[in-house]
Amino acid sequence: MEAPKFVWEGAIPLQIHLHESQVTTLPPPPPALILAPRIGYLPLLAPLIKPYFSSTLPPGVDTIWFDYNGLPLKWYIPTGVLFDLLCPEPERPWNITVHFRGYPGSVLIPCEGEDSVKWSFINSLKEAAYIMNGNCKNVMNMSQSDQLELWHSVMNVARLRAAFENKKAHPGGRSSGNLEAYQRVSSKLKLATVDDEYASLCLQKSQQSVIETDLPAQAKTGRVPVRLYVLSVSKDFDDLDEIPRVDSWEKISYINRPVEIRKEDKCFTLHDALKILLPELFLDESLMNVKLGGVDLEDAVRNSNEDVTSDKVVEDQGQNACKRPEACRISSSAEIKLIRIQGIEPKLEIPFSWVANNLLNPDYFLHVCVCVKVAQ
């Protein structure tokens, strides 16, 4: 239970600057310092950020969005995932820029505030349920009160735990009980889980020390919903700060693929999961010339905004994601340089069932960031 608690309480220190084109006062306002939850979403910080900068904004309609080094940040990706993906060498505090004008509609899909974030989250939950259970009826049939309580448990941790560190800000605090509320409601969805092979192996060793028997680890067969973010770089590097900055989302591939954990005599590891998630890296051809498969995340979010009450789109996405690719030997022209999950750089030998049971986001997806060195 400790690991999920740490995931829920994980946070990124943000230093948020108002874009210079929207500063109308002298001196310009100092940046806002916020402790943003990893599992939250940047637009949910708007009620804290807007009052702080409101006195210096030009007249007009506010449409909040953020950028990092000029790259617009996609609002439907959890804050912690954005940080892991775009800051290989962790930058603390993370310096990002907030805008209230000039929404980049050619790069970001529209965000109508909290409602857009909410329905994007619910749609992800439906998709995860379909992958895990073969249908999303339990999510579709949630009562209105349960749906609101589930969403508020995520939204409140994003707002109540965000804390300004300057005199103009409203102090925030940790929201106790949100994790318990989330677990209470999400347990009603009866989403399939997998047995923790690490715990099973520990139990096996303990039993072997008492009675000399060979007990195989018992792991349930199940699918784990995974969102994979792959950053491909052509220049080799020794230190993380040498990785080129991402200046376009075209340099990042999104992949939605389930990982199926099967009953086997040996432990199914993170390395085994990567063979399923990235079969392109186990082929004798450059990743640069391969279009990574799977469901496109932005299409999924756009579809969720078009029709949030139907599960047809979710089922189509789930069916496509459940097609299991074949894994082959590692490519000589590509190399995995970095893997991050919830800010952790796990060893490839770790049991994947432990990762799946402890590092999921509230939408029941495992968000994995990978940096791949590819041949020029």
Rank of each mutant, 00 (worst) to 15 (best):
V246E: 08
F237T: 04
L277W: 04
K263D: 05
D247Y: 12
K235A: 15
P279L: 10
P258M: 04
N256E: 13
L281A: 08
D247G: 11
C267P: 00
I276R: 00
R245I: 06
L270K: 06
I255V: 15
H271T: 12
R245D: 09
D238L: 08
L278A: 04
R245H: 05
T269Y: 01
L270M: 06
A273D: 00
F237K: 03
L277I: 01
Y254W: 11
I276V: 13
D241M: 02
P244S: 14
S234F: 10
E250D: 13
I261N: 02
I243T: 10
E242A: 14
L270W: 05
E280Q: 15
K251H: 15
K266L: 07
E242T: 08
D272K: 03
V259R: 01
K266G: 00
D265K: 05
D272H: 09
E260L: 11
K275E: 11
W249L: 03
I243V: 15
K263H: 11
P258L: 01
D284N: 15
D239P: 00
I255C: 07
H271E: 15
E264F: 03
S286F: 06
L281M: 13
L240C: 00
I261Y: 07
S253A: 12
T269F: 05
I276D: 07
E260T: 15
E250R: 12
L240R: 05
E250F: 10
H271M: 14
E242W: 09
I261G: 05
E285T: 15
I252N: 06
L277P: 01
I255T: 03
A273L: 02
P244L: 15
D272M: 04
V246P: 10
L278S: 06
E285N: 12
I276C: 10
Y229E: 06
I252D: 09
P279W: 12
V230E: 00
V230M: 02
L287T: 01
I276M: 07
L281E: 11
D265H: 00
S253K: 10
L231N: 13
S248E: 08
E260A: 10
P258C: 04
I255S: 07
L270I: 08
C267S: 10
K263C: 09
S286V: 10
I276K: 04
L283A: 14
F268H: 10
E264W: 00
T269N: 05
N256L: 10
D238C: 06
Y254I: 03
L240E: 01
V233L: 09
L283Y: 12
P258H: 00
S286E: 09
L281V: 13
Y254P: 01
D272P: 02
D236V: 04
Y254L: 08
S286R: 13
I255R: 02
P244N: 15
I243R: 09
P258D: 04
